[in-house]
Design a protein around this nucleic acid. Structure first.
Lengths: 207, 207
DNA sequence: CCTACCGATCGGTAGG
DNA sequence: CCTACCGATCGGTAGG
C-alpha cells in the first residue's frame, strides 16, 4: 500500500501497481527472444515479473492476446522508426538508405517484435488488427521518388528488391548467420554499402 | 513380417520395417512447418508415423538429435540444389541468377529444413556438425566471376547484397508477407526481375 | 517396437 | 493479485 516514488527495486517483488501489464510484456519479449514465439510460457513470464501464474489473466484474455499486444506494439515502433528515417533522408537515394538502416536497426533492437510481426503473417487466421504496418508505404513512396519516370512494373521490382535486401540482411544478422560466415564488425556500415549496390542498379533503369 | 512389395499403405499402420527413421523425419518436418522448430513434439511425430511414443528413441537419442538430422539433411539438399544451379548458368550473371532461384526454390520446397538451418545459427551452442553449407561457397565464387577486377571489399559487398536479397525474398515468400502485401502470382519470375535489379547495379562497379 | 509410467510444465479456471 | 487446482501434454525411461 505504500506509495513509492522510487522505481529502483527490480524483479521478484510482487506488483501491486498498474505496471504489471508492461512488466509482463517485457518479460514475454525476453522469453520469445530466447525460446521462440510459439514456445514461450505465460507462467515463466509471470515468474519473471514476480507475480503468480494466474496474474497475467487479469491483463490479458489468454496467451494469444499477449502475442497480439506485442504485434501491435511492434507495428507502432516500426512505423515510428521508419517515419523518422524517411524525414531524415535528404534525397531519394538518401531516403531509401535511411529507411533500410531503420528497418534493420528495428530488427536488431526489437528482435522479438520483429519475429512476431513476420512470423504471424501466414501462421494464424488473423482476426483484423487495429494496427497496420504503414511503414511499408514509406518504402513504396521512397522507391517512387527514386524512379520518377518508370513503369508500375519497374516500381514493383525495385520495391521487392529493396524490401528483400533489407529483410534478408536483418534476418541474417539477428540469426547470427552473417557473423558466423563472414564476420560482421560494423553491421550498419556494411548495410549502407550493400544498399549502395542496390541503389546504383536503378540509375540506368529510369530512362 | 510380410515382405511387402507395395508401398501404397499409408499411415496408422505400425512400422515393422526399416523405414521408421525416414517416416519420423517426414512427420517431424510437417510438424515443424506447422508449429515451429522449438514446439513440435516427438510424441506427435510418433503418432503420425503410426508407432508408440517410445519408438522414436530407437532411432534418435533425443529430440535434439531429430532436429540435428534435419539440419544435416537440409545442408545436403541445399548443397545439391546450388551445385546444380551453378552448373546450369551459362554466364557470370546467369550463374548468380540460377543460384538465387535455386536458393529461393529450396526455401519454398523445404521450408522446415530452411528454418532449421537458419534458426539454429545463433540459438544453440552447436557441437561440430559433419555437414557444411558448401552451397554458400558457390555464391562467393559466382560473385567473384561477376567482378573479376574488383577489390575484396567490393566482393564482400556484393556477396552480402546477393545473399541478403535472396534470403529476404525467400523469407518474405514462405512467411506469406509478399503475397499478403502485394500479391505474388509468379514468384520465380518476380525473383528473376529482382535479381536483375541487383546485378545491373554491379555493371559499373568493376572498373 | 509396445505398455506403462515418471516428474515437469503447460494454458487456463475456481473462488476468493 | 493469490492459492490451489484441472486436464492435457511434454521429453524421456523401465522393462520387457
Amino acid at each position: 500500500m505504500a506509495r513509492d516514488g522510487q522505481k529502483g527495486r527490480e524483479e521478484h517483488q510482487p506488483y501491486h501497481h498498474g505496471d504489471l501489464r508492461v512488466a509482463l510484456l517485457a518479460a514475454a519479449l525476453q522469453l520469445i527472444d530466447e525460446h521462440g514465439v510459439k514456445s514461450f510460457s505465460l507462467k515463466d513470464a509471470a515468474k519473471m515479473a514476480g507475480v503468480s501464474t494466474a496474474a497475467p489473466y487479469r491483463h490479458f484474455a489468454d496467451k494469444e492476446a499477449v502475442i497480439r499486444a506485442i504485434l501491435v506494439e511492434g507495428y507502432e515502433l516500426f512505423n515510428e522508426s521508419l517515419a523518422e528515417a524517411y524525414a531524415k533522408g535528404k534525397s531519394p537515394q538518401g531516403r531509401i538508405t535511411e529507411l533500410g538502416v531503420a528497418y534493420v536497426r528495428f530488427a536488431e533492437q526489437h528482435p522479438a517484435h520483429f519475429r512476431v510481426m513476420f512470423g504471424l503473417a501466414g501462421s494464424a487466421g488473423d482476426q483484423p488488427l487495429d494496427a497496420e504496418p504503414t511503414g511499408f508505404l514509406l518504402l513504396v513512396e521512397g522507391v517512387e521518388a527514386l524512379l520518377p519516370g518508370a513503369s508500375g512494373e519497374q516500381h514493383r521490382d525495385l520495391v521487392v528488391a529493396c524490401w528483400s535486401v533489407v529483410h534478408g540482411f536483418a534476418m541474417l544478422l539477428i540469426d547470427g548467420a552473417l557473423e558466423a560466415t563472414m564476420g560482421m564488425p560494423d553491421a550498419e556500415k556494411q548495410l549502407r554499402r550493400t544498399l549502395g549496390v542496390m541503389i546504383s542498379g536503378t540509375e540506368n533503369a529510369g530512362h
